[in-house]
């Protein structure tokens, strides 16, 4: 049914393709600046800290903590309505960058700020894997 609401999926660009390829392969990869060592997320053509273009894709740990979160009890996008209540969170990776994500694998009521979490790779029907987290 073409009228069924579909969740918005990422549209990878040549710039961000390595990130999404990494998730599909079960790894979390971030750009890292060869000039100043900063991790860069989301993917960019140059390092926003020092303007160097020498960014290298690096595999990172996938470990992090819940920086903050909310439990969405009414979805705005119709495709998310069957999922409520779900956790929409910001996770701070061990390496520093923060990512918008979902915490799954536990009850929404059990999520806490600063809770340790680890990455998991949630493959969608469209073939793209999303970066989500579960309690570590």
């Amino acid at each position: 049914m073409s009228d069924q609401p579909r969740k918005p999926l990422p549209r990878p660009s040549p710039l961000s393709q390595p990130f999404w390829d990494g998730l599909a392969a079960g790894e979390l990869r971030l750009q890292r600046c060869a000039a100043c060592d900063a991790y860069v997320f989301y993917p960019r053509p140059h390092c926003p800290h020092c303007l160097s273009e020498a960014l290298k894709w690096t595999r990172v740990s996938g470990r992090g903590r819940v920086y903050t979160y909310t439990v969405v009890r009414r979805a705005m996008h119709p495709a998310f309505r069957p999922d409520v209540p779900y956790v929409f969170a910001i996770v701070e990776l061990e390496e520093g960058p923060r990512v918008a994500t979902n915490v799954i694998g536990c009850s929404p009521e059990d999520v806490r700020v600063e809770m340790p979490v680890k990455a998991l790779y949630d493959r969608t029907a469209a073939g793209i894997a999303l970066l989500k987290f579960e309690p570590a």
């Binding site: 660009s13 969405v72 996008h77 918008a100 979902n102 989500k132």
Partner: peptide
């Protein structure tokens, strides 16, 4: 749209 919307934010509310 690429790095936040796929996770279901509820507009500004969330």
């Amino acid at each position: 749209r690429e790095f936040e919307a796929p996770y279901g934010p509820m507009g500004a509310n969330s």
